[in-house]
Every structure is written in C-alpha cells, then in structure tokens.
C-alpha cells in the first residue's frame, strides 16, 4: 500500500441524513489504487449507506466524492458504473429467471457496448460469450452456467454476483458483506478468491465484513465506523490494539458473529 500516490477514491466530509437521522456523517477517506480497505462497524453503523452514496444509489446530503480525479458526487448509478466503480449488494442482487451464464452476459455486454445491439443474436455474440465463460470459470461456477440463477445455492449466488461485478471491469470494487450467510467452507472459498483478485493488482477493494478473520486476512487498512462516523482508520495492527475498538468489537466475546443477523 502506498498512500502517498494520488488516491483513486477521495471521500470528503460525506454525510447522509434520513429525515433528522444522520446515517453517515463527516466521513473522510482516501483510498489508494490497488489497496484493500475494510470497513467495519456494528449493524446500523452506516457502511451500506456509505456504499450507496459511492455507487450512486443515494445522493449524499453533504460532502464530495472524487474518483480518479473526477467528481462523481450524486451521479446516477449507471454513470458511476461506467466510470469504473462496481459493487455487490448485501442481499443477493441477480437476474433470478436467467441462467447463470446469461446473468454474466448481461453485465459483459453492458460494458462492451453490445447491449444496444438489436440486430444480433445474444446467444451467438462471440465476444460476450467468451468473456462471460472466462468469468464464470474464474469464479469457479462454470459447472452451474446453464442453471437458472434462482435455483443455485446462496453461496453460489454471491459468487455469481461477484462475476457480474467483475464483468464491468471496474477499477474500484465495493463488496458489501461478501461472506454474509455463507457456510465456513464457502467463506473460505470466497476469501481466497478475493485475495487472489486483490493480489492480481487489477482492482482496488472496499469490503465491509463482519467476520474479523476475513477482515484481518484481507485488509491493508481498516476503517471503523460507529453511528455513521469514523471511529478509527489504520492498519490492521493499529486497529487491533486500539482501545475503543477493542471495547466495541474485538473483546473476547463473539460479538462479531452475533452481528451477522440483521440488515
């Protein structure tokens, strides 16, 4: 990690209020290219809301977002996706009635500009097909390619969503609790996969996660959020020993696991 480079993403004074309630307030964060930043905090801390603002799903109440030197504050989701930011959702977000292959094809053809072609035959669009095949291969769901997406396992749906995220060839990837609801086996698989992707040097990752083993295993830096605010930002070592963080999340109990249950 090298934070002296110009950051790929720069978050300045970002805030979101719902009515009078501040879900996120005064968040500052610079993310360097190719680093992995984990965002942790209890449920309701504002992690998803932060993602929603970065990805254009919600307009910030205050503050600015700069991606690769360009302001993306308040842009529509499709513009932010085009700019190079892609996200997964805390709750699986796929095309349930399409095959796994088609799910990925839609994302690939969106990026390649094939999506507007009305004169081709989708199932014979070579470039799209090949790229989609490579992606399902990369996420080890190739054996499920012809299955209807609604019928595959929960963990495989998360992998499918990841394939769709990567299909847009993002430079910045936002993952919202990628291992939530997964079996320990699946968690390990996904963690290893994210590690490989991070090591490939193609992507910058923001990851929210409740599983501390996953967080400490992947993150270059960790942002700890609490009630919408930034509590601590530092390396895993700094965060691990930080007294407030220890008190809040890392005590000798299994609070982190309990926290998985809601939202």
């Amino acid at each position: 990690m090298n934070t002296t480079d110009t950051p790929i993403l720069s978050i300045r004074g970002l805030a979101k209020r719902f009515g009078g309630v501040a879900a996120v307030s005064g968040i500052d964060l610079d993310v360097a290219a190719r680093e992995t930043v984990a965002i942790i905090g209890p449920n309701g801390a504002g992690k998803t809301t932060l993602y929603n603002m970065i990805s254009g799903r919600m307009t910030p109440s205050e503050g600015e977002l700069v991606f690769e030197g360009r302001s993306i504050t308040g842009l529509a989701p499709h513009r932010i996706s085009r700019a190079g930011i892609s996200r997964s959702f805390q709750i699986n977000n796929i095309f349930p009635e399409m095959s796994v292959r088609e799910n990925v094809e839609v994302a690939v053809s969106a990026r390649r500009g094939t999506a507007r072609r009305w004169w081709n035959i989708a199932s014979r669009a070579r470039g799209v097909q090949d790229e989609a095949a490579a992606l399902v291969e990369r996420l080890s769901i190739a054996h499920l390619a012809e299955r209807r997406a609604a019928t595959i396992s929960y963990g495989d749906k998360r992998l499918l969503e990841l394939a769709m995220v990567l299909a847009t060839r993002p430079r910045l990837v936002l993952l919202d609790e990628p291992t939530a609801g997964m079996t320990p086996d699946e968690t390990q698989r996904v963690t290893a996969l994210i590690r490989r992707l991070a090591d490939s040097g193609e992507f910058t990752f923001l990851i929210t996660e409740h599983d501390m083993a996953v967080v400490f295993g992947l993150a270059d830096r960790i942002l700890v959020m609490h009630r919408g605010e930034r509590l601590v930002l530092g390396t895993p070592e700094e965060v691990r020993v930080h007294p407030e963080v220890r008190r809040a999340y890392l005590g000798d109990t299994d609070e982190a696991d309990e926290a998985d249950e809601t939202t």
Binding site: N93, F95, P96, V106, A110, R117, W118, I121, A122, M164
Partner: peptide, 27 residues
Amino acid sequence: LICRSSFGQVLRAIAQNPERVAFCGLN
C-alpha cells in the same frame, strides 16, 4: 430478432431486476 438480440436480453434483465442493470452501467 429484436427479442433474441443482446438488446432483448437486456430488456429481460430489466424486467427481472432493473437496479442490477443500472449497476452494470446501463441507463
């Protein structure tokens, strides 16, 4: 032809999950 095209495929995707389509970068 339109229904079987990539454009038609995107329309079917929109019917199932417009938000996902937007996050794939399409208006």
